[in-house]
Amino acid sequence: MSKPLGLVNRILPFSAVDGPGNRFVIFLQGCNFNCVNCHNPQTIGVCDVCGICVEECPGEALQIKASGTEIEWNKSRCLRCDNCIKVCPSDSNPHSQWLDVDFVLEKIRRSASFLSGVTVSGGEATQQPEFLRELFHSIKTDSALNHLSTMIDTNGSAEISIWKSLLPFTDGAMVDLKAFDNQIHQKLTGNSNSQVLQSIQHLQKAERLFEVRLLIIPDLNDHDLMLQQTANWLCQLSNNIRIKLIGFRNHGVRPEYSDFLEATPERLDEIRELFQGFGIQEIKVI
């Protein structure tokens, strides 16, 4: 039986910002949310081989494969100008590649002695559950790799059945909660938050919730009342829940959202105090 392929946007063999310790990070291509704050919008869409980037590439580094199902990227010709990303009508890019699990495992193996673990991010990692499951299963059953912790960086939209299939090989998930209020969540992500809240609950019960990440965009999702509701809900889930407050930064976001206000350190401090008031101890502010 052939192992599933993953559509991989990028691999980072060293990262200090994707979970505990030093981590090998795999960014998968494709996300089912469409968040206004997305810093990597070119990871949202999956390429439909429209060919526009091929036409627009000044280095002639791109061509449609003979199969017609994929775009081939000639790295040695690439000028790294990212024009392909700018012209893509689908928030995708031609640099993502279909990789098999063994290929990724070999890369992890080479880095293993320097790592605390592996994080799969995105895009949305849980959009490719077969690949994710096979990768984590392989890590946990390989004696040279099973010291590595396996983490998922997720928007929380996966169905409970998907979590159930992943959790036996997953040490933790870092879940984004863009807004506790469903209407605001809809506005920020284009989707309802009901599955996100269920995922957080499920992961907490299964003791696999590493942290909840709360995005703070001034005037959009930082109203005290909603934050109080958020804090109340989270502290009822668990009294030692770990949260990370992430102030909105407009770096890298799409032009139509770049005039949103950035969260000030003072406002983030106030919000930290608000959450502390609910007995939440572990709060990181970024």
């Binding site: 910002v17 310790g21 970024i286």
Partner: peptide, 23 residues
């Protein structure tokens, strides 16, 4: 040389140091 992102995650550097010694 490391960039400043490691400041929030000293364990990441500990991992690399231990990996280096193990190599």
């Amino acid at each position: 040389h490391f960039d400043d992102t490691v400041k929030r995650n000293p364990q990441a550097v500990v991992d690399v140091i231990k990996g280096g010694l193990a190599q």
